[in-house]
């Protein structure tokens, strides 16, 4: 029982740091000068949100909810590849 108390206390303390870094990523998404900065910030936001989902699944004691973290990480990576393909195709053709 004290193990559960230790885990929930430490993870609850760590949540505001996650929220602060999400806020910094969102500021870079909003004010980024070029398109690549915004895509990079969305990429990092998605990866860290997947890690946050894993932590939250331990905190909320629902182990079956972890499957959405893998899906989010893989599909945010796909957005990166789409934009890179668009930027390259205009110069190289195809």
């Amino acid at each position: 029982m004290e193990l559960e108390y230790l885990v929930s206390t430490v993870l609850t303390i760590l949540i505001p740091f996650y929220l602060t870094s999400f806020l910094l990523y969102i500021i870079r998404v909003v004010k980024g000068p070029t398109l690549s900065d915004r895509v990079l910030a969305v990429d990092s936001l998605g990866y860290d949100l997947a890690a946050f989902m894993v932590v939250l699944s331990v905190l909320l004691k629902a182990p079956l909810m972890i499957v959405s973290a893998l899906a989010l990480a893989l599909w945010v990576y796909a957005l990166d590849i789409y934009v890179a393909k668009y930027l390259e195709a205009r110069e190289m053709g195809g």
């Binding site: 895509v39 990079l40 990429d43 990166d80 930027l87 390259e88």
Partner: peptide, 20 residues
Amino acid sequence: ILAQAGSHALARATYISQGA
């Protein structure tokens, strides 16, 4: 595996298209 592949693809595309 995926994070560095995505970063490299984005950096190469940005350098080629002179987007930054």
